[in-house]
């Protein structure tokens, strides 16, 4: 760690306790909000253990133990779907974080110009494009309207490669979806890193420049290590959600195309599809709870690992 200019946070002097109480005042709005809007509705999680019916509602419906959990865990597809969920999320998370980091480092090289601002706005924009529009654009590229070829296939035929029917090729889709995620989130993630870069003292760079370090050297040996805490936080937060599929994007793109399920079906899409007509709150809640609990274990493990190897960036 090159962070000479930044005193590691662990060495911070702790405030005396009356001051601590005053400080606690600042947390009151946040604590109040979490208690009412986040923890209040959590009472509704009991529905995961209930045989829900509409008239009796969440709290009046009879208990049924773990019956709601059986549905998903005993289904023959559970293994494939869990593997897909973990694999795709790991891909999405690492690719979008790396893209965000690289973009931030490189944007940082473009200094003070209108061009930088323009580029920053431009790469932020994909975040706003709705999944349905992404899906339309992908079709234009991969299959063309009405399945008539598509831009990519036209390109392939120009360079004498065989055309592919992308929407019936399951193997390609984890990578296609990853590219979509990088496009969607690269700019968004880079904003977070850019804000963190501004916190780095200019003097560190000046000192390095005097030592004759190149810009690449500085990016790699000064900026990147100082961004590690932010990267660590983003990574841990992402790991906690690793059991939740990216429902909106995957569903809008893959829809009900069963041919692609072997590589693209994740827990959320599977549950939505199988329960959309039956609409059973109990089973849906049970699967959600299962995802949360597993996520909780993952994140606890991640935090422990992080505390062991890189304590400064731990969120705890």
């Amino acid at each position: 760690m090159q962070g000479k200019a930044v005193v590691p946070a662990t060495r911070r002097r702790r405030p005396s306790s009356p001051d601590g109480l005053v400080l606690l005042l600042l947390a009151v709005p946040g604590i109040a909000w979490f208690s009412v809007f986040a923890y209040g509705p959590m009472a509704g999680l009991v529905v995961a253990f209930k045989d829900f019916n509409v008239r009796d509602g969440i709290f009046g419906s009879p208990w049924n133990g773990f019956a709601n959990f059986r549905y998903f865990l005993t289904s023959g597809d559970a293994v494939t779907i869990i593997v897909n969920t973990l694999f795709l999320n790991a891909l999405f998370l690492s690719a979008s974080l790396l893209a965000g980091l690289i973009l931030a480092l490189m944007l940082n090289e473009i200094r003070g110009s209108l061009y930088r601002r323009f580029m920053q706005s431009t790469i932020f924009f994909p975040y706003f494009v709705s999944p349905i529009v992404i899906s339309i654009m992908l079709q234009v590229i991969l299959s063309g309207v009405g399945g008539s070829g598509g831009a990519l296939n036209n390109l392939l035929s120009v360079i004498d490669l065989p055309q592919l029917s992308w929407y019936t090729e399951p193997g390609a889709w984890p990578w296609i979806l990853t590219i979509v995620k990088v496009w969607q989130l690269g700019g968004y993630t880079s904003v977070i890193f850019l804000a963190a870069i501004t916190a780095i003292s200019e003097e560190v760079y000046e000192a390095a420049a005097i030592d004759g370090a190149s810009r690449a050297r500085m990016a790699l040996s000064i900026t990147t290590p100082l961004l590690l805490p932010t990267l660590g936080v983003l990574l841990v937060l992402g790991v906690g959600r690793i059991f939740f599929g990216d429902f909106a994007t995957i569903y809008a793109i893959v829809q009900d195309n069963g041919i692609l399920f072997p590589t693209t079906d994740v827990i959320d899409t599977y549950v939505f599809r199988s329960l959309r007509t039956i609409g059973d709150f109990g089973t849906t809640a049970a699967i959600g709870l299962f995802q949360s609990v597993v996520g909780f274990f993952f994140v606890t493990a991640a935090v422990l690992v992080q505390r062991r190897f890189h304590k400064e960036s731990s969120i705890l």
Partner: peptide
Amino acid sequence: VKQEAAQMNNVIIQHANP
């Protein structure tokens, strides 16, 4: 047969729709 129905729904979408 609620659970069987929900699982069958997936089978139909994945294997019958093509």
